[in-house]
Design a protein around this nucleic acid. Structure first.
Length: 576
RNA sequence: GCACUCAUAGUAAAAUGGAUAUUACGUCGGCCUCCGGAGCCGAAGGUCCAGGUUCGAUUCCUGGUGAGUGUACCA
């Protein structure tokens, strides 16, 4: 299947427009747009073209709409459009056309009507990026889950996506960890469970340095030795990273998040000095107060905000590493686009390095995809150093435990293994859906009950809709068999078929502003539409074409829900 | 100081210039002789303030008010 319904209608609408008596007066390059109807009482699709054009052609919008409709050929697709309100053109689809679309969806088992991007790109997706030697806290959930979902969607649309975990494996914190490793480490504890032990020594050293200046110097000295290539410190550092990765991997496995690359900050070490030199040579960077900076005198917002790329002591900074990373991604990974799923507080930093990249002539699309903060009950940011942050691993564990209780209550007859498996899918799915179903910029207050809610607009509601599609076929005793007649006899069937066909319009739209929540909303509406269909339309009691049609609707609904949830990184289960 | 975000029912969210602002939780009231009630149907409750642009503004612009974040050697 190629064109979406909106595209088909838009083609016909623009043909009609070309045949009006005012077609010569249209603005250069004007293209009328057709969108899903805001409110179904007005029709299935709508266009505001007449209102947009009214002024240009100096006529009343309703007259313009009437002229367009006069020459509109709906063909198999649409009934005669209606004019409504101030000049909306409303389309209602032909029943036969919708029946055909459903048939087309049945034949497109893999993509379900979604067309591949016409301009496939190589995209490097940078998300999650935790610091090593510290456990991921609840704040990492947003970057990880949003980034993973965008990656899945871009791949589904035919882009070549490289996910890269740009871990913080070289920062200042290693001074403290090295000192702690040498003076405070409990080897047995490290063997048993490395992450908590690494966290313990980091926290202890961090606390001590607050009141002990001499210790701060010692830590700094350890860091200098590491960066100077000291063999002992390097060995500790490598072991530290290996242990941390094992801990991180456990969480990624549980979340079902995969990375193609793990190129942390340390990977770019020997690229930093030449990079600074080249920026100096190109007159992009300059020396100021002993440091090397890039100034932005021509950008009003950045006029008093230089980016530092080398400290006065010769050390390099965050911006330096990120610039080297951009080079690598463009030159070695051949990226057409780089996506950074990073918290909104980093706005200025990315603004700066993107402008520097542009000045250097790099024209890959660099996208900063920010998200809001997860706040505590006091509306303050949850911070690592506040001491009482919620760890991500604990959130996931709690989510699964809560889900397990519900499963045990609802389905005591399931085997312990089944219960556990279902609880895992529902618990993890709930956490992901809570995140993905809201606009990413919204700050929200961390609350167990919100994040782990199992009723309402939540993952379990969607998964339950999927389970119901499967229950039909379980009851039937066989899988769906294609080839049946499709003919609609109830409004609930048409509503559902339309919703299913709109999957093809929603998925690409997610990437236009990186909003997985639009897909989540669509899936929620689809589940609701299916539940209504379920109430209104018995399936197995019917016979012949009615039954075949309804089985087809159940089958396609199941596929779209499974596929759509999959694009959000949420798994489905056959029963729950 | 400057910059960037954000402000929507009791609470939490959606609406990327469209029509009567959409959902969930909570509250109140209905629906199982019927394929899974983790469901369906119904009720009450609303865009921070003042201007502007527009046929049309929750959305864009200006100015307030309130909150958060960032702003030269952390990442």
């Amino acid at each position: 299947m190629s064109a979406t319904i909106a595209e088909l209608l838009a083609i016909r609408l623009n043909e009609a427009l070309a045949n009006t008596d005012f077609s010569s007066g249209l603005p250069e390059g004007f293209v009328a747009r057709v969108e899903q109807a805001q409110n179904r009482q007005f029709g299935d699709y709508q266009s505001n073209a007449a209102m947009v054009l009214a002024k240009q052609v100096k006529r009343n919008p309703r007259e313009v709409a009437a002229a367009i409709i006069e020459s509109f050929e709906g063909g198999e697709v649409s009934e005669k459009p209606e004019i409504a309100g101030p000049g909306f053109i409303n389309f209602r689809l032909q029943t036969g056309f919708l029946e055909g679309r459903l048939g087309g969806l049945l034949d497109d088992e893999e993509k379900l009507g979604v067309s591949p991007s016409g301009t496939p790109q190589t995209i490097v997706a940078d998300f999650s990026a935790p610091n090593v030697a510290k456990p991921m806290h609840v704040g990492h959930i947003r970057s990880t889950i949003i980034g993973d979902s965008l990656t899945r969607i871009a791949s589904f649309l035919g882009h070549h996506v490289i996910s890269d975990n740009h871990i913080g494996d070289w920062g200042t914190q290693f001074g403290m960890i090295l000192w702690g490793w040498k003076h405070l480490l409990n080897e047995d504890a490290l063997e048993a469970d490395p992450i908590p032990e690494l966290l313990r020594i980091y926290r202890e050293v961090n606390a001590k340095t607050k009141e002990d200046e001499a210790l701060r110097d010692e830590c700094k000295n350890e860091l200098v030795k590491l960066q100077g290539g000291d063999a002992g410190n390097l060995a500790i550092w490598e072991r530290c990273i290996a242990l941390s990765r094992i801990g991180l991997q456990k969480i990624y496995d549980r979340l079902d998040v995969k990375f193609d690359l793990w190129l942390g900050e340390s990977f770019y070490n020997d690229r930093l000095a030449p990079l600074v030199d080249s920026l100096l040579a190109a007159d992009i960077a300059e020396e100021s107060e002993g440091a090397i900076c890039v100034f932005f005198p021509n950008e009003k917002q950045l006029a008093d905000k230089p980016a530092l790329i080398r400290k006065s002591d010769g050390g390099f900074l965050y911006a330096t590493t990120d610039l080297a990373t951009i080079d690598y991604r463009i030159e070695e990974l051949k990226a057409d686009a780089v996506w950074y799923v990073v918290g909104a507080p980093q706005q200025l930093h990315f603004d700066q390095i993107f402008r520097i990249a542009k000045r250097r002539g790099q024209n890959a699309e660099l996208e900063f995809i920010p998200f809001g903060s997860i706040l505590g009950k006091d509306r303050k940011m949850l911070r690592t150093r506040s001491g009482d942050t919620v760890q991500l691993a604990d959130v996931l564990e709690e989510a699964v435990e809560r889900a397990l209780k519900i499963v045990e209550e609802k389905n005591p007859e399931f085997s312990p293994g089944e219960k556990k498996e279902i609880a895992e899918i529902i618990g993890i799915g709930s956490v992901k859906y809570a995140e993905l179903s809201q606009f990413r910029m919204t700050d929200y207050i961390f609350d167990w009950d919100t994040m782990l809610a199992l009723k309402g607009n939540t993952a379990p509601y969607l998964i339950n809709a999927y389970v119901r599609t499967r229950a039909i076929f379980r009851k039937l005793g066989s899988d769906f068999e294609p080839g049946g007649t499709i003919t609609f006899t109830a409004d609930a069937e048409k509503d559902l078929a339309l919703k299913l066909a709109q999957f093809a319009e929603i998925v690409p739209a997610v990437l236009s502003d990186f909003r997985p929540n639009t897909l989540a909303t669509y899936l929620y509406e689809l589940a609701t539409t299916y539940h209504r269909f379920w109430e209104a339309c018995p399936v197995l009691k019917e016979e012949g074409a009615v039954r075949e049609t309804r089985l087809a609707l159940c089958e396609v609904t199941g596929r779209v829900l499974r596929c759509g949830l999959g694009l959000l990184g949420i798994k489905t289960t056959e029963k729950m």
